[in-house]
């Protein structure tokens, strides 16, 4: 009986500890989610977008610093306006999309979390995996928690939204993407801008 009561107490504590945490699904039914990439090399400036975003993020509005989760980008959705450039970008020499179909970022910890009303800024540290190469990076993000706003976006669905914005830079040489080649046309540093919204239905 005592053992049973102890287990119930432990279960209660676990529930209390995770009560505020919500899981947000970043597969956007509206198709707005996107990642913009920019390179500015001496001979060429290239802008493109990836729209195939998915993944789940666990977020507690009462404890934003405990955020964890994984964002997945379908590499085949990377688009640039020039068709030949797109073919090269997705080809074996650059991102090799056929062999490495996803680009992922898995957040493992957050630091410097500051919250004002429903907006939190934080530095997310996690593992970025591009072309099969995983590297630990820190990304500054702005999180906006929109309570009860899901119904405004998806009728007949109650719940909350989490908007994630961030701009940061990665080096293609760190991920073995055509390392040291063509830097006059494609810079080593690639600027990535995240514009993502996740939903947590109730």
């Amino acid at each position: 009986m005592k053992k049973h009561a102890f287990l119930m107490t432990c279960f209660g504590f676990c529930l209390a500890a995770t009560a505020g945490q919500q899981t947000f699904d970043f597969k956007d039914p509206k198709g707005v989610n996107n990642v913009i990439f920019k390179t500015d090399a001496p001979l060429e400036s290239i802008n493109g977008t990836a729209t195939g975003v998915s993944g789940n993020v666990a977020f507690d509005p009462a404890d934003p610093g405990s955020i964890k989760g994984k964002i997945v980008v379908d590499a085949a959705t990377l688009h640039v306006p020039n068709p030949m450039m797109k073919e090269h970008l997705q080809g074996a020499m650059w991102l090799d999309v056929a062999k490495f179909p996803t680009i992922t970022f898995e957040a493992i910890s957050a630091a410097k979390a500051k919250t004002a009303e429903n907006v939190t800024t934080a530095d997310l540290t996690g593992t970025m995996t591009i072309k099969g190469v995983a590297k630990k990076i820190t990304v500054p993000v702005k999180l906006t928690y929109l309570a009860d706003k899901l119904k405004d976006r998806v009728p007949n669905l109650k719940g909350d939204l989490l908007v994630l914005r961030g701009t940061f830079t990665v080096k293609r040489s760190d991920f073995g993407i055509n390392q040291g080649k063509g830097e006059d046309k494609v810079a080593d540093e690639i600027e990535l801008t995240l514009s993502l919204a996740g939903q947590s239905p109730r």
């Binding site: 509206k30 707005v32 913009i36 400036s45 729209t51 306006p81 939204l161 514009s195 919204a197």
Partner: peptide
């Protein structure tokens, strides 16, 4: 720049205020 077969258009989501990018087929 190089020839383009699509051009990006920005569409603002009224709820999240995110800027979505939609490519429209156009020869430039």
């Amino acid at each position: 720049g190089w020839t383009k077969t699509s051009v990006p258009h920005t569409v603002k989501d009224p709820v999240t205020e995110l800027d979505g990018v939609v490519y429209v087929n156009k020869f430039v």
